[in-house]
Design a protein around this nucleic acid. Sequence first.
DNA 1: GTCTATAAGTGGATAGAC
DNA 2: GTCTATCCACTTATAGAC
Lengths: 206, 206
Amino acid sequence: MSSVSETRTERIPAAERREQILDAAARVFGERGYAGSTTDQVAQAAGISQPYVVRMFGSKEKLFDEVIIRARERLETLFRETLAIADRDGLTGQQRQEFLGAAYLDLVEEGGIVLPLMQAFLLGHDSVIGASAREGFLMMYRLLRDEAGLGGEGASQFLAGGMLINTLLTMRMAELYEAEPDARELIDEACGAKVAVMLDAVKAEQ
Amino acid sequence: MSSVSETRTERIPAAERREQILDAAARVFGERGYAGSTTDQVAQAAGISQPYVVRMFGSKEKLFDEVIIRARERLETLFRETLAIADRDGLTGQQRQEFLGAAYLDLVEEGGIVLPLMQAFLLGHDSVIGASAREGFLMMYRLLRDEAGLGGEGASQFLAGGMLINTLLTMRMAELYEAEPDARELIDEACGAKVAVMLDAVKAEQ
DNA sequence: GTCTATAAGTGGATAGAC
DNA sequence: GTCTATCCACTTATAGAC
């Protein structure tokens, strides 16, 4: 509309901007953790000014809280939808577990959900986030145990596998996928067939 | 030697002081992560002044690095010792795995090793710590797969279980052990027989 | 709806005394 | 070997203009 280098931020509805910030924050927090991230990093990722980020959410802490709430909801929704499909198709126990695992890896690929949640799990000492993290984790356990019908042992094994994947992700183990055969083997083992996912997640960061 | 309230720090050899600081740092970093901790928190935990902590290690980053190197060594030593005993007693594959699991939970109980390592796993984006974390993790994988003879699948399952335990710890899930039956069930499931460990780890913090 | 300017606080690191 | 004092950079948050 004006000069060649029209870099100024466009004026868009607050609701939409809010979503943009939440997306950016999810990536930044997921990558560097709560304490390791700055509101300015979030702002830059969202293409706006730092004060605007704070103004929109009141504080860094509230922003993180929102990100976590959103991630929990997204994860729960995904699992319920996946189970609905599994029910519809009459999958067996073993099949259901694999189906859920594939859905989880899809979510990893989607980005901005799994990593911030993992970061929240490391904040048990924070009374607010800690409580939210524990609650969310228990919700998952119950859902897997009861709704998915995996039983206590199956549910805890599923969660264990998930935590291994999360850890490999935050560690960026996939950076060694090509160079280090053992890294490749471990990732393959952790992710089963759907390995490409993790590689994409890494490449997206670089 | 002087007044009644002799609260001043005693003068002790640097090497000994160094160990004290490393112990304190391991607990603080393990609890709040690298970015979430301050050198002053470490100093207070060690009962000395903040500048002294920095002076002794050059920087916060170098201190964290030291903590991680130490933790990696301790973990590796523990597993090798445990395997030596397993060999001596001629334990079978399944028995060896359980034996290693018990050893790991002992290490959790000991404190200051497992949690800082877990925190390091979340720092994949840091070129120095990230590389150290990946290296340490791969070392564990190889050790479990080859030395312990668990095979690729067994090793990755073992690590998965470990990551679940670590996550439950950092999340402080044990705080709900009494009040929330599902939390209890999940912890029992993750830790097997040796549950008391996790409870102690929590109580030690409060 | 979004920015610039900036206040206020925190935390890592350095200097130098004891 | 250890501290006090302090500097400086960084970060969150606020004020107010556009």
